[in-house]
Write a protein that binds this DNA or RNA. Structure first.
Lengths: 141, 141
DNA sequence: CTACATCCTCTAGCGACTAGAGGAGCAAGC
DNA sequence: GCTTGCTCCTCTAGTCGCTAGAGGATGTAG
């Protein structure tokens, strides 16, 4: 059923690049797969699932360490999922802060660009606003 | 007028940490200041302005290379500000994409957390959603 | 004059990859 | 069989923007 595939095929299937797969193996995020006679890695279905999991979690901005925890949880399905929930909640908090701060940033960039009359630098809002942080009263971090 | 200050005072005034100031000097973002007899750096008002500019630009997410360009522009105020405008617009585009992707992410995290009934992992929405990327049809990058 | 803070240089480390060198294996066409 | 060209292997070093620490010199307050 789970016919084994090469690292290239695994990369294509999972969307994780070949060197990144090797990197994940190196840092112990992905188990070392068996090899062919010619020393090539052979990945099975469970490896592909794991890779997809990792990729998705990375896309969602989870750090490798958080993913490590999530993978341990996934491997042991009888455990309470409170830990997973906690990680997700922490991440949600981060995301919300990041969105708020990016929204403020967008506003400021828009203000800069709208103010730029395409003249010389001396009248340029972009440079001016960057130079005059005093004018800008938004909240960082 | 511009009485010279120590690196520590410059750090306090600009909000850029001491080692970071030295790092900026090392990569040529900030000119090497004169030194005291005892080999300590002495910063003047223009250095402080430059540091504040850099800090603000970094807070806005501009990369060091972009800041380098912006600083060259700032130093030569008779130039057209099109380059600065272009950099700011590029950054705005990035920010907007990042906001959109974070908003999608927030939705997915909320869905995960709401689905998690605090039971065991096997029924946990958090793990389940991460594992099943197929279900999730949002746009990345 | 003695603490202690601040400064100096230098090197190494972080996270999460990415790039490149230098070589081996493999599948297909001639 | 032989060559071409792709994929694969390992290994090291580089990316970005800092940050941390060692080990030492200098400056300042009590």
């Amino acid at each position: 059923m789970s016919r084994d595939v090469s690292i290239g095929a695994a990369a294509k299937a999972s969307g994780v690049k070949v060197p990144t797969i090797r990197f994940y193996e190196q840092i112990g995020l992905l188990p070392s797969p068996p090899r062919t006679e010619g020393n090539r890695r052979l990945y099975g279905a469970s490896d592909l699932r794991r890779l997809a999991f990792i990729r998705h979690a990375r896309e969602l901005g989870f750090e490798i360490d958080a993913i490590r925890t999530l993978l341990v949880l996934q491997d042991d399905p009888d455990q309470s999922c409170d830990a997973a929930d906690k990680i997700a909640r922490a991440r949600l908090g981060e995301v919300e802060m990041r969105i708020a701060s990016l929204a403020a940033l967008r506003k400021e960039l828009q203000r800069m660009i709208q103010g730029c009359a395409h003249g010389t630098v001396s009248e340029c809002r972009v440079i001016e606003i960057l130079a005059d942080h005093g004018e800008c009263r938004h909240h960082h971090q």
